[in-house]
Nucleic acid binder design. Structure first.
Lengths: 232, 232
DNA sequence: GTCTATATGACGATAGAC
DNA sequence: GTCTATCGTCATATAGAC
């Protein structure tokens, strides 16, 4: 008798589809106009609807940014989970594991510059992601930290440095490559990127510095800071 | 007899002072509202004048950004020239020289986040610095390259890698520290910055990798890229 | 050089009819 | 859920009097 057994779900699904479309178009606009150049009116225009209609799905522009932030982080997490090779099973070197992970990560950021700017820079004055939107971004750090913990368990990592420090320095390295590429040569793709090309060397110096074993760390010298008069 | 021997210069000087004030206030606004949040009206408001008056000094908002870009680069160049210790005279190590230079550079960026975002990121959709505004920024690269060239001459640098590559990787490293600090912990100053604290280690791994001598590069292994199925 | 006045338009967001 | 209409605000930029 009921021709539509779940009419509510149908409507909800339609709603979700529209939301996805809004996000797709928003990313498109951001890629062209810059992250801060996103405008509700422009999104509506491209979707063929009027600006007020968007407010049915997003109560404010900030909410739109928030959803974009969360979706970006989710997409990147998925990419890292999916595309990173499971090198733990084989006896891969630290350098192999890290270069693989770095390539997957950096590739995504270069192919999704709009998301990356939103995720890794601070281009929107008033905007800070909500805790729920930030959650998947935290997962990225967790993933990376677990990888380092696993490497330490396998004896690939120096044991005289905390995992937090290793993790921090690793993010600095990756952020440097991404930042330089997106800021100075945003039109180059992953294969041609001049700063992406620095990845192997960066990973090599990192692995040589933080890797365990006598060959990788020949002379363990303290790297504490010195006070120097010249630096103000 | 002539009480004002150079009245034209006086007027010109007054004009230059006003321009300087505009730039000061503009930086102030950018620091609070974000680089993209700069508005001509807000600058005028804080100066106690009307927006049209600003157009006497800057024909457009882009021209204002351009002047800010140039001034930022000039300030940074001056800082690097002035504050960097002349370690070439003494027989300083590569690590000492680089850590000193890095600290001077990074300190300035942390203490001038608005300039830094304008200089090193791309926060303003339509804006690209004019060639003349870009000139002092180029000088920064030249300065750094000359430093590496000097180190090579003194036998501190590996000779099997081009200076361009060394220079590129160095910028990646510094950009990583600055980018992470400004994006993730913009409220921390230079001394307390958690990513600034990564500098000694980053410099150490760089020096160990690119420094000359048998102790710094124990096992010269090729770091060519491998094609791997997992990376898309 | 500074002002008033204004052109011109975009923006985010809301009210209320359908 | 979508629309028209509109509010209120802000923006960049220009014209022309003083």
């Amino acid at each position: 008798m009921a021709t539509e057994p779940v009419p509510l779900d149908r409507r909800q699904r339609r709603r979700l589809e529209t939301i996805e479309e809004v996000l797709d178009v928003a990313i498109e606009v951001m890629a062209e106009q810059g992250v801060a150049g996103l405008s509700v009116g422009e999104v509506a225009r491209r979707m063929g609807i009027r600006p007020p209609s968007l407010y049915v799905y997003f109560p404010s522009k900030h909410a739109l940014y928030d959803a974009l932030f969360e979706r970006g982080a989710r997409l990147l997490v998925t990419q890292v989970r999916t595309k990173t090779a499971d090198l733990a099973s084989r006896d891969a070197s630290m350098e192999e594991i890290l270069l693989d992970a770095a390539r997957v990560f950096v590739r995504w950021t270069i192919e999704h510059p709009a998301y990356s700017q939103l995720l890794f820079w601070r281009p929107v004055p008033g905007f800070e992601p909500s805790p729920s939107a930030y959650a998947p971004a935290t997962e990225l750090v967790t993933l990376s930290s677990e990888r380092f913990a696993a490497m330490r368990d396998r004896g690939l990592l120096r044991t005289d440095v905390s995992l937090d420090v290793v993790q921090r320095d690793w993010t600095v390295l990756i952020a440097g490559v991404v930042s330089q590429q997106l800021a100075n040569a945003p039109d180059e793709d992953f294969e041609r990127g001049r700063f992406v090309a620095a990845l192997p060397a960066m990973v090599a110096m990192f692995a040589r510095y933080y890797g365990a074993g006598p060959t990788s760390v020949p002379r363990r010298r303290a790297t504490r800071e010195r006070s120097r008069r010249s630096d103000r």
